[in-house]
Amino acid sequence: MPTSPTRRPDLLRLDYDTYRALPAIANSDLSRLRDALDGRAPRPQTSSNEGALSFGTAFHTALLEPADYVPGQPGLNDTLVWWLVDGVKMNTQLNTLLDQGTSEVSALFTEPETDTLCKLRADLVVNQPDEPFTIIDFKTTNARDADHFLWQCSAYDYDRQAAFYTDALQADRFLLVGVQKIEPFGVFTIDVSEQMLAEGRQKYQRLLRLLKAPATAPAYRAEAVQAAVNALGLGSSDTES
């Protein structure tokens, strides 16, 4: 008998701290594990109310939750933030998606290959009748041009995030939008290809398998990988980027 399709996980409206406290593995947790595997220093653990507000966080708030934007934060150029927001909205396709979509939605799901409880928080999800189910993620970038941003999508593991989210939400389409924070303040839209998704899928599944079996890490990275897994506690995770 044919198997019934897997049900798409519910989209949840959660505040940031509630999302962060969910006992599940986020894409950013996989980045911590990747850093340990690559011999990079551990990322600092921060909460939403610690430290200076990053430019990227400010931009996301202004674009996706403008009512929550607080001007005058130390070290932030409010004019530049809103300039970039206006640049995104000048793109007719992106402005339509912003009007149709739901921002900052979360989901809990079990990744089937490794049976790992995971979570995600998407910048924007568009689910309209007779239209492809679309996820959009916005990245501020210093990329010189669209080709440079496309390279960053692989080098910075944005492809892994795209695959992680696409597979979890059974999305038809994933858009990565690079917004230059330097002149000429261009906006680059990448419609993530099946090849990029396949490469990203290999990345996240490899890291989830390592999370389940840290002893399989190379001997010279075993201690760092085990420490990263212990810090996650198979369920204690941090921010989504």
Rank of each mutant, 00 (worst) to 15 (best):
L175E: 00
K212R: 15
I25K: 02
Y220R: 12
Y69W: 11
V179N: 04
T134G: 09
Y165C: 08
A58V: 06
N230Q: 14
A143R: 06
A217N: 00
G235A: 02
Q170C: 11
N230S: 12
R20F: 03
D130W: 12
F133A: 14
R201Y: 12
S106L: 08
G235F: 01
Y16W: 13
S47N: 12
V85D: 01
R43E: 13
A162F: 08
P74F: 07
L33T: 04
T189Y: 05
L37M: 03
G87P: 08
E194T: 12
S48W: 09
D35P: 02
G75W: 04
E240W: 07
E223F: 08
P9D: 10
T61Y: 10
T216D: 15
L169W: 04
A21Y: 01
I190A: 09
L98V: 07
G178V: 09
L150S: 11
R32V: 03
R121A: 10
N49C: 13
Q128K: 15
S103I: 03
V126G: 04
V88P: 05
D15K: 08
D191N: 14
P2V: 09
D17K: 03
L80R: 14
R209H: 12
N77Y: 03
K181E: 13
A163F: 01
L211D: 06
A215E: 12
T57W: 11
N49D: 11
R221F: 05
Q180D: 05
A52N: 13
Q73N: 12
L37R: 02
S28N: 11
R8A: 14
A228D: 03
D147S: 13
G51A: 06
L33G: 05
W83I: 09
L208H: 01
F174T: 14
L30N: 01
T96G: 10
P71W: 07
M90E: 15
L210I: 02
Y69N: 00
